[in-house]
Structure formats: structure tokens, C-alpha cells
Amino acid sequence: MRPGRLRLLAAAAAIALVAAPLCVTPSFAQTPMDNDPLDARDAKRLDRMEKVVRELRDIVFAAQKTGAPVVVQPADTDSRLTDLATRLGDLEQTLTKLNGSLETTTHELDQSRRDNAALRAQVKSLGDRLAADEQKVAEAAQAAQTAAATPAAPAEPEAPADPKAAAAAAASAFTKARQLMLNGDYDGAQAAFAAYVTTYPDTPRTPEARYWWGKTLAVNGDYARAAAAFIGAIRGWPQTVWAPDAVVELGRALVELKKPTDACEALVEVNRKYPKAPAAVKSRAAAVRLKAKCG
């Protein structure tokens, strides 16, 4: 006998055994009993058994028609529960990894915040120190500018009885002041030329001393006093090599003092009074005109 037939017979026998207890006469099932032996749990179990019997019967009948061996597959519910359990396990693993990554990211973020706070504190400290240093530099510069703008009046030498001795003293003072400027000591030169103008107001070189004095004042940004010095230098339009440049410097000082109209009027005199001025001086005059927006 073929194995498929044997399996069919075995399945049929199992169905008969399971179904046998169910084959009771209706009269017996309908007999009233004071104490029903089947409680609710047994009733559910019986329903499940009847369902299994029906499924087995359908399988047997289908096998009889096709001749195929009887294979009882697990219930679809169990398969789904197994699949859900697997997926749940995968989700738990993924969640665990995400939690680990989140903890790492949170730790790194906290560390970055601490680093940023420390950096901001360092920047603030450096900014405070820089502000303090700038304040000290500004105060020192202001003190130096004040001292340079108001040089201590040197003791006026007694006028020598001999005119030649007086002229020699004036020439020596001018030479010393000019040398200070050539050496780059503009503060010292400024004080020396101021002393010369005060001590020797009427010498032939006093206008030139005013010109150089104005140059040192302009270098230190004192454009108001520089303009006054240049005006005193070019009074009478002297025909000297430094006079054209003195006019240009006067115009530049007036531009810095926000007086472009006055600057343009002064610069007109460069070509009129000094037509033979050096090309470099004329070029600088043109640059100042452009800055003053002369017409």
C-alpha cells in the first residue's frame, strides 16, 4: 500500500477518534442537568477541537481526491506571531542602536557647548584686555598730542649786544630744529620751530621756520594750527623754493578742516603766484583739488 494511502487512513482514524465523543444522540445532549459539567473554559476548548476536526476533514477529503500526502500546516496565526516577534526583535535592536547614537550625540553636544562657553569666556577676556590696552594707548596719545601742541616755552635767550652774534644764534637754532626734522623727530622739531618763531619772530628765516613748523603740526594731525603756520609762512607770497609747497599744504589742511571752498581758493594761487613750481608740487596740488572737489 502506498505511503500516501496510509497517511490518509491514519488521518481518517484520527478524525474518527476525535469526532467520536461528539456523536451523541440529540436527546442525551438536550437532557437537562442540574449541574452542567462543561464550564466556559471547556466550552471554548470544545469549540477549538471542533474547528480542528473540520479542518482535518477538509484536508482528508482533499487528499482523497488528489492522492497527495496529508501535510498539516501550522496555523497562520502562529506564523504571523513568529514574524511579528522577529520584527519586534529587529526593532528593539534598531532602537538600542539609536539610543546609543543619541547618547553619543548628546555627550558630544554637551562637550561642544562647554567648549563654546569656554571659548566665549576667553574671547571676552581678550576683548576686555584689548579695550583696556586701547584705552591706555588713547590716553597716552592724547597726553603726547597735548604736550606736543603746547610745548613748554623755552627760556628766551638774552639778545646779544652784537647783531652778528644774534644772527649766529638764530641760525644755530634753525639748523638744530631742521636737523631734528631730518632725523624723524617730529615732536622735537615741532617744539624747536615753535621756539624759533617765538624767539626770533622777525628774522629772514622766520617764514621758513613757520613753514616747517606747519609741516610738523600736520604730521601730528593738528591741522588748525598747521593752517595758521602756513598762512604766516606765505604772507606776502615769498618767492622761495618752499613757498609753492606751503600753499599746497595749506590747501590740504583746509580740506581736513572741512573747508573745501577755502582750500580751492588757496590752490588757485599755486599756478598764478608760482607758475614755475616743480612738477611734483603741481601734481600734489591737483590731488588736493580732486579731494576738495574744486570746480
Rank of each mutant, 00 (worst) to 15 (best):
L6I: 14
L8T: 05
L9R: 14
A12R: 11
A16T: 08
A16R: 03
T31S: 12
T31R: 14
T31V: 09
P32M: 01
D36A: 12
D42E: 14
D42G: 09
R48W: 04
E55C: 03
L56N: 11
G67S: 07
D76N: 10
T77Y: 11
S79T: 08
L81K: 08
D83S: 06
D90H: 09
K97Q: 15
L102I: 12
T105R: 07
D110R: 03
G127K: 12
R129I: 04
A131P: 00
A132D: 15
A149M: 12
E158Y: 01
A159D: 12
A161C: 01
A161I: 04
A170Q: 11
S172V: 00
R178I: 07
Q179P: 02
L182E: 13
G184L: 03
Y186V: 15
Y196M: 02
T199C: 07
Y200P: 00
T206F: 10
W213S: 05
D222P: 01
Y223W: 12
R225K: 14
R225I: 05
Q239S: 10
A243S: 15
P244R: 00
A246L: 05
E249Q: 15
A253I: 00
K258T: 10
K258N: 13
Y274S: 02
A277I: 04
A279P: 00
A280T: 09
R284H: 11
K293T: 10
C294W: 03
